[in-house]
Computed example of a mutant assay.
Amino acid sequence: MDYSRILAGQGEPHPIFSRVVEALENYEEFPFLLEPIYREASELEDEDLNRLRFGLVRLQVYADIHRYEDMEAAQRMKYVASTLERVLFGRLLLEGEEAGGKQQCC
């Protein structure tokens, strides 16, 4: 599976995507890659951070679309992408306000 292509979408791959791909390909190493990815992301400019976030969102959407083809791979993609997005951005972009802990009135 070409994780880099999924992360990059229509654009050019960003160097940080290789770290995310490494986490996907070496899932057992993900806990040890989390901090290096966080540190590298903390040095990115806003535009590159947005590219990273949308890459993670694309990965989650791709996992949802293809979940029945390979459930284990889809679960790994979804877990890595959503964990990184929560650590880096505090919440999931696709997560609604209700799921984010805010209660809706009336």
Rank of each mutant, 00 (worst) to 15 (best):
E45K: 12
Q104T: 15
Y3G: 00
E35V: 15
Y68C: 04
Q10E: 14
Y68A: 07
I6P: 00
D2T: 01
P13C: 02
L34T: 09
E35R: 12
E98P: 00
R19T: 11
E25G: 00
E40T: 10
M77G: 07
G101N: 05
A73R: 06
D48Y: 10
E95K: 12
E22C: 14
L84Y: 00
H14W: 09
R58W: 11
V57E: 01
M77W: 04
M77Q: 01
Y38G: 12
R19D: 15
F17Q: 12
A73S: 06
D70N: 11
D70I: 03
E47H: 04
A81P: 08
R19H: 07
I37Y: 11
E95P: 02
G9I: 03
R67C: 03
C105S: 10
A41P: 00
R76F: 02
N50D: 15
E72I: 06
E45N: 15
R58D: 01
C106E: 07
A74D: 07
R91W: 03
E69S: 13
V21W: 00
A63W: 07
L93A: 09
P15V: 10
R67A: 04
E95A: 13
A74L: 03
L33K: 03
C105E: 10
R76G: 04
I65D: 12
N26F: 04
A63I: 07
R58K: 05
L59R: 01
E40H: 07
P15M: 12
F89I: 12
E98Q: 10
Q60R: 14
E12M: 02
I16M: 02
I65Y: 10
I37R: 07
E40A: 14
R51S: 04
E72N: 02
Y3V: 06
P31V: 08
T83D: 02
D48L: 14
E40V: 05
P36L: 03
P36Y: 08
Y3Q: 00
P13R: 00
E97P: 04
S82P: 14
L34F: 11
R5E: 09
G11T: 05
S4V: 02
R91T: 12
F89N: 15
S82I: 06
E43V: 07
R39D: 13
Q75Y: 03
Y62N: 10
C106S: 05
V61M: 01
L92C: 02
P31E: 08
Y38M: 14
I6V: 11
F54R: 09
F30S: 13
F17C: 06
R86E: 09
E45P: 03
E95D: 08
Y27W: 06
I16T: 05
A99P: 07
Q103E: 13
L33Y: 10
N26I: 08
I65S: 01
R58V: 05
E47Y: 07
L34C: 04
Y3K: 00
E47I: 13
A73G: 05
E29T: 03
H14K: 14
L34G: 01
S4D: 04
M77S: 02
E97A: 15
M1F: 00
V20F: 02
V61Q: 03
L56R: 06
I16R: 10
P13Y: 03
L33N: 05
R86D: 11
V87S: 05
A63F: 08
R76K: 07
E40C: 09
V20L: 02
Q60I: 04
R67L: 04
